[in-house]
Amino acid sequence: MAKPSVVLQAAAAYQPDDDPFFRKMIGLRELPMRIGARMRGKHAEVAPPFGLHNFVALEQQDDALAYGLIGRFWRPDFGLISVSDGAAYRDFNMAGVAKLALVFSVKPQTDKITKLETETRVFCPDLASRLKFTPYWYLIRPVSGLIRGRILNSIKRESENSRN
């Protein structure tokens, strides 16, 4: 039981790197990239493990928080393209590159009970990116669902442990 502001604050503070399951699944997802880099002698050039630090904050309102990510997610290295802020994210438009938005929203149910929802939307600007993203999504979807459930449970625990 927590107020919407407390729940949204816990969502904003969430760090998936603290979850061993998340770290293992990301490690497994990145294994081909890391093996390939090691075989090419470029292990030192590989980015740190994927996490929320790869996202850009798009917007925060009293009842929602949104993050964005741009890339060719189906590639072993995620094909990430870094942008500086929400405006750069919104303005970005390149064929073959997908944009992902992750939103946390809160809805009060009673005085102290809040419903937290999360939604991920992916925009593929062309047929080529859709044809590459779709099989990737079906492959990662089950694990993505498990991770999302763990994120929501973690935020719930943190919200309930916080002082309202």
Rank of each mutant, 00 (worst) to 15 (best):
V122W: 06
T134K: 08
T120Y: 04
T114L: 11
L139Q: 03
L146W: 13
F104A: 10
L127K: 06
P142K: 11
T134Y: 09
P135Q: 05
K99L: 10
L146Q: 09
F123K: 02
I147S: 01
A95H: 11
L127M: 07
S159R: 09
R141N: 08
A98V: 10
P125Q: 03
T134F: 13
S129K: 00
L127F: 06
V143H: 01
I147W: 01
V106L: 02
K115W: 13
D126S: 01
L152I: 08
L102Y: 13
R130H: 09
T118S: 06
F104G: 05
A98W: 09
S105D: 12
K112C: 13
M94F: 03
S129A: 00
Y136Q: 06
P125V: 01
L139Y: 09
K115N: 13
A98Q: 04
A128C: 07
L139C: 08
K156Y: 00
W137Q: 07
T110M: 01
I113S: 14
K112R: 14
C124N: 05
C124G: 00
L127P: 00
L152Q: 03
S144F: 05
G96R: 02
K107L: 15
E117V: 05
Q109N: 11
L131W: 07
E117A: 15
I113D: 14
I147C: 02
L152D: 01
T118P: 04
I140A: 04
Y138T: 11
M94V: 12
I113K: 15
A101F: 11
V97D: 02
E158N: 12
K107F: 10
K115I: 14
L102A: 11
M94H: 11
S105M: 09
P125Y: 04
A101E: 15
A101N: 14
L146G: 13
G149Y: 06
L100G: 09
F123L: 07
R121K: 07
T120I: 04
D111Y: 08
A98G: 04
Q109S: 09
L102H: 12
P142W: 10
V103Q: 11
A98D: 12
L146A: 10
K99A: 06
V97T: 14
V97A: 07
L152E: 03
A98P: 03
M94K: 12
D126A: 01
E117N: 15
R130V: 09
W137C: 07
Q109G: 09
Q109V: 15
R130S: 12
K99D: 05
I155D: 08
T110L: 04
T134N: 12
S105Q: 10
L116E: 06
W137E: 03
S105W: 02
A95F: 08
P108N: 10
L127D: 02
I113L: 15
D126Y: 02
T114Y: 13
P125M: 01
F104T: 07
I140K: 04
T134M: 14
G145V: 02
V97L: 05
E119Q: 14
L139S: 07
V122L: 10
Y136H: 06
L131V: 05
L152S: 05
A95K: 12
L139E: 04
R141M: 10
I147G: 00
S144I: 02
M94E: 13
S129W: 00
K132L: 15
T118K: 01
T118E: 04
S105H: 11
V143I: 07
F133K: 08
I151V: 14
N153R: 11
C124I: 02
